[in-house]
Design a protein around this nucleic acid. Structure first.
Length: 255
DNA sequence: ATGGCCTCGGTTCGAGGA
């Protein structure tokens, strides 16, 4: 099973890239974030034509998540149960025995923004829910845009980023708490190139200069991590015309 | 040099992203 995640920064704009990527990579599951589409505008027809079914939970302008799959879905869950939130950031379903959770963690804006405590509160609720989900599903994959660079090696210039959102000790502690529930960062199960990132600012020629962050992750429950044979970042879509600022991350598990 | 770009909604600019 190949499972992947990609923050597309508007599915309307990025649909051709997504279809091209599906054909080239043939993932079994692809989680999307920042679709920025209401459900009635979701491009289900071209996705079906490409051989995928989809679950989607969107809103106008902001956020929006979707799960594409070549296999049937069951047990759909919207959002974080018990956590009231109008922002469409989480969608979950079970596919081929794997509990798939597609997440778009809040950005936080800055450490002194009102959006920052919302991010921490959100992560706390998310973590509490994942703990409960693990009781029922030994094979879990939590894929998405975490908006957290877990370690300094996930940041192109840790000094320059010190004191910024995405790298703060509070956010990193929240990420560690999720791992502590019984998850592994699949990317770090394998040898990887130094300065591997999943996001580069559109400005400053950041991609060409590899000034990026690794903030998109595939976390696997310990039992599923045992079955993981690869995890990699695909930089190719970032080189296309009108790219998303994020690239896909893809992992393979042998079931 | 603390900006620089992209997307959306809705108009020719502001909000939000990271």
């Amino acid at each position: 099973m190949k499972i992947a995640t990609w923050n597309v920064n508007s599915l309307k704009v990025r649909l051709p890239h997504v279809l091209e990527w599906l054909e080239a990579n043939e993932p079994d599951v692809l989680c999307l974030q920042e679709t920025k589409l209401t459900d009635e505008n979701f491009p289900i027809e071209p996705i079906r034509a490409a051989g995928y079914d989809a679950l989607y939970s969107g809103q106008k302008t902001y956020n929006g998540v979707a799960i594409l799959s070549r296999h049937p879905f069951s047990e759909r869950t919207d959002g974080i149960p018990g956590f009231e939130d109008e922002q469409k950031r989480v969608l979950s379903a079970t596919v081929s025995g794997i509990r798939i959770i597609c997440a778009y963690v809040p950005n936080g804006e800055s450490l002194d923004s009102a959006k920052f405590p919302y991010k921490l509160k959100w992560l706390e609720a998310f973590s509490a829910w994942l703990k409960e989900e693990l009781v029922h599903h030994s094979h879990m994959a939590v894929l998405g845009d975490y908006n957290i660079a877990p370690e300094d090696r996930d940041v192109h210039d840790p000094k320059a980023w010190e004191g910024s959102v995405l790298v703060s000790p509070e956010e990193r502690a929240a990420f560690s708490r999720v791992l502590g529930l019984g998850f592994r960062d699949s990317f770090r199960l394998f040898d990887q190139e130094d300065k591997s990132f999943t996001w580069w600012d559109y400005r400053m020629n950041a991609f060409r200069r590899n000034m990026g962050l690794r903030i998109d992750h595939i976390l696997l429950s310990d039992a599923l991590a045992e079955k993981c044979i690869s995890c990699s970042i695909d930089r190719l879509p970032r080189k296309l015309e009108r790219p998303s600022d994020h690239t896909p991350v893809i992992a393979e598990v042998i079931m």
